[in-house]
Every structure is written in structure tokens, then in C-alpha cells.
Design a protein around this nucleic acid. Sequence first.
DNA 1: ATGAAAGCGCTAACAG
DNA 2: CTGTTAGCGCTTTCAT
Lengths: 326, 326
Amino acid sequence: MTVTIRDVARASGVHVSTVSRTFSAPHLVNVDTRNRVLAVAEGLGYRPNRAARALTTGRTHNLGLIVADIANPFFPPLIKAAQAQARERDYHVFVADTDEDPLLEQELIETFVKQVDGVLLCSPRLSNRVIERLRAQVPFVVVNRRLKGLTTVLMDVGQGARAAVAHLAELGHRKIALLAGPHGSWTSDEMHAAATAAAIEFGVDLTVSGPNEPTEQGGLAAAAAIAASGATGVLCYNDLVALGLIEGLDARGVRVPGDVSVIGVDDSLPGRLNRPKLTTITMPTAAAGRMAVDLLLAAVGAGELGTPTLARLETNLVIRESTAPR
Amino acid sequence: MTVTIRDVARASGVHVSTVSRTFSAPHLVNVDTRNRVLAVAEGLGYRPNRAARALTTGRTHNLGLIVADIANPFFPPLIKAAQAQARERDYHVFVADTDEDPLLEQELIETFVKQVDGVLLCSPRLSNRVIERLRAQVPFVVVNRRLKGLTTVLMDVGQGARAAVAHLAELGHRKIALLAGPHGSWTSDEMHAAATAAAIEFGVDLTVSGPNEPTEQGGLAAAAAIAASGATGVLCYNDLVALGLIEGLDARGVRVPGDVSVIGVDDSLPGRLNRPKLTTITMPTAAAGRMAVDLLLAAVGAGELGTPTLARLETNLVIRESTAPR
DNA sequence: ATGAAAGCGCTAACAG
DNA sequence: CTGTTAGCGCTTTCAT
């Protein structure tokens, strides 16, 4: 039923090893033979069995991609890009969602180990200890978390945060608030540090509050405190939080950008579609996905010897409609 | 380096087949032996190699999930649910994005064939002919497209479309427009048919225009025509189109819902976050994802004998803020 | 340039 | 209940 290398060999009058070569090392086989084999294979509808190949080569040509929440609009562009890049390199990718659960994350990695050549971890919540143990078993690339010794792709949100504070200051805002993200989020810590420094640099007052849930609810829940705080400029952990905040503010009769200016992070679809269109820090998620795959594949090729790399991608402030002069 | 079944066998003083059994048919092995083997395996960090297993069993325990565009907010909830359901059944899922390209879609399926036990096709654009050929090689389940002989999960958008027209009629709208989706979209055809019937039933005027791109741009581009048409109620192919339309209308000084009522489809995040919050037809994407996986797994279990099933999932109109009395 | 043969890690009869 | 023995489909020395 299923056509194997043997069928092709028989039908084209050569031995299996020759067929194998025409697929995995074409230059080692005579042009005529190769063409004949190729023709026969085509005719028979032969497709190499990757699992069988993996068994002998030790390369599955599969990658694992683990994210916290597929439905969070931050991730889909990254997944899309990673998957496309992988396909270009003849790799397939398993996508798994941890539902923000570190235990599940660990389990997923463990079941992936034998089945993939490498794992892409996006904003992982895993403890360093666990990662330390797992990294011996399979190459990792980590996105948006700092883990020493691991190849990492970082989106330099600090850059954008600084620009955001500068933008707010320039608009005349003197009291600024930062709505931080979940505990343990590298992005949030980075924003915190950069915003603090920028507040001093630009001579504005900064209040940080958090952790907040990285969702609309998180922003909504923070609205009362923001409204009461007297802050007229707010930088939010992400677009969802910003959108929730705007909604909560609106419900209290506080207008954006009339009374308060709000800035998000991600440049996500909901933010772009919102009215007022959200001023936001663009995260180069697609580029990060592509780069992470390339780094991972490089690590796979290099074996253990690979030197950990650190890639930093630029972020930018995109000024739209949710910020205005004080 | 990598610990195999043989290592476990040696270390626990039994033969490989016994080890194999304790993992794939535990009831066939003595409790004490089993526990010993399990303990040893645990200690050695043994994990069965699924590729090797696949080679003998013919079951990869992998599924392929093919969607048109991961970044389209319609899909992530479906992907998330499918992937979670699959994991519960001890299956992993490859996710691939066709970028709306039927050729790429076909290629993807073909590379998946040998590597998965089944393929989930979401809103496929493939020609019937191609599917006919491919279905012999691997079980399919199709979401939101009618393909005779194939197991299918449909989200009954006609139901919702009828409710939408009824809602509009009830609000006093007499001239209604339908912004159709891409050519070949089952969902769009279904909406068309249901809206047409409902227009007659409720005595309103219906104009259909399309095809439109299933994006914000598509809606934006249609705004001029809608504004000129005199329609006061619009049903859009999806939320993105609705959001784009609202934006385009707004730019022309036409207010939603003041002047025109707009209804979307999907109940996507951007629609929920929009202001005015979008009145929309909920698509049970998560339920569809789960159900599709279960049907696919059932088909995998049944082999060729599986009878094609047709599952219809209900949709509902959710009335929010983008619709108002005429 | 091609053939022969061993074996990747595992399961599945078949014995015992 | 456990051991023995063939492979699954493919790659990879090693010969020729």
C-alpha cells in the first residue's frame, strides 16, 4: 500500500542504497541513474519516510515551538513566521500551548525531546534549574527571556520604553504611570528599568504598579487606580492591557487621549484596529520568529559545540492616536 | 548518550520486549517486573522514541493542522483548542500556514502524509480533485467546507446570519447590505444563502456585494460603496471586515451605530475590544477544533472503514454596541 | 558509481 | 508472564 524505497529500487532496477542516495546525496549518483530513479519514484508517488530517516540519522527535521498562549495576539505572528522559516529549511514545527503553566511547559519539552531537533521557547516561565537540566537533551533557543548560556532572541523593549517616556514628556506630561506585567516577565522588568532611567533623564515622575495580568482584564482592573493617581500618561505592559485600561478609563468619564495618554506594547491587531488607534511599541515578533528558527537550526547543525548567541532586535515607538499633548 | 529500551532492559535484568510491554501494554506484564522496569527507566531518564515506534506500528501519534493564516484572529482559538485536545490524547500537532495559497496547501499535505496519522484542514481552498487524490493517503477532517465523502465540522453560520438579519429588521432597518467574503469560501456562500432567505422572510431589502478580502482592508475598501448605497444595516463576512468598514464609514462622517448598524462574524478579540463593541455572530472555533480532533482520531482508529460524519455547530448572534435602531 | 549488509529503537508474533 | 526473533524504511560504512 505504502510505497517504500524498496519498491522504487525494484521498479528502477537499482538497489535501495542507490535510491537512498539519489534523495539524500544526489551528487554521488550517476546522472542517468538518478533521473531514472527520480522518474520512477515520481510515477510511484514515492515519498521518503521521515521517521525512518530520523531513526538512522538522528535528525527528525522537526522543531518544537512552545508558547504561553496561542490566542494571545502577540504570538500568532511569531508562530506564523517561525513556521514559514522552518518550512523553507525543510523543517516541520510542532506548536504547543502551555496555558501559562510552567509544569505543563516542562512536560511538553520532555515529550518533545526525542521527537524534535530543537525547541523554541517563547517567553518561558520555567525555572532556571529545570532548563538547566533539559538543555543537555535538546538544543534550545529562547525568546524574550534572559537565560545565561542559552541562545537568546530579545526584543529590545527598553529602547521603545525610553522613546515612549520621551514622547510623553515631550507632550508635556509630568506624572507618568507604568502598568507592569506578570511577575517574572523579562519584558516587564526591562520596561521597568528603562522607564525608570528615562523618567530621570527626562525629568518626569514615574509610578510603577503591578504585577498586572497581561490581558484586557488586567488593564480594566487598573483603571480605577490610574484615574485616582493623577497620572496623565500611562505606559502599559502590552496592547491588551492598554485597551482594557482605555475602556476602564472611558467608563469613568476619563477620555483618551483627551485627559490621559495611553501607550501599549506589541503593535497587535486589536491595537491597530482600536479607535483611538493605539500608540504602541512595535515588537518585531515575525523577525524574532525567523531569527530564532535560524539560530536554532544553526545550533542543531553545530551539535554541542555551538556558542550561545544573543540577538537583540530593535523596537520602535509608533505614534498613533492614543497620545496627545497634556 | 541517548538511553534506549535496551539500556533499560539490561539495567533491570529483563529483555527488551518486556520493557516495551511495560510501556505499550502494561497489563501484559507482572506488576513487580513492571514496577522495577518503570523505576529503572525513570532513573535512567528513558523516554520511548516515538519515531521508532511509528516505524513498527504505523502510527506516528502526530496530527497535521493546516490553516490559511495563523495571524487571522479566527484561527488561534481553534489551533489552541485542537492542540490541547490532541495532547490529551497523546498526540502532537504540526501547525502549518498556507498563506492562502492552494498550491502551498497541497504541498504541505503531501509532506505531512507520511509523518502524521491525520490532517485537519481548516477552510481549505484546495480543489476537490486534489483532495480526492490525497484522501486515499491519509485521513482528513475538514472544517468549514463542504466536501462530499469527507468528515466535516461546520459552524452553522447560516443560523447566525438569519438572526442577524432578523435583528436588523427588528431595529427598523429596511435596506440591508451583505459584504461577502472571498470566492470559494463556504462560510460566505452559506451567509449569502441564509441572508437572502431571511431578507425575504423578514421583508427587507438585501444587496450583496463581493467578493471582499477577509481583512480590515476589505472592509475599508467597501466603505464608499456602502455609504453611497443607502443601506443602514450591514452584515460583514467577518469581524475584520466589519472593523475596517466602521473605520471607513467613520472617515466619511457616517457614524456606527448612529447612522449605520454593522454586524461582524467570529466574535474575535479585536471585535470585542473595539468601541463600539461589535455586534457579531459567534463562531464556536474552540469547540470546532476539539471536535475536529476527536473525529480525526476516530477516523484514524477506524482505518478505511470510517463513515464520514457531518457535525454542525451552532452559531449565535451576540448583540453589543455596533447595532442600533434606525 | 553501485551493491551488500548492518543497524537505528522499537513492536509484534511466536514460543516457551 | 517473559524471551526470541523478525522486521518497520531508511542511511551508511565497506566492498567492488
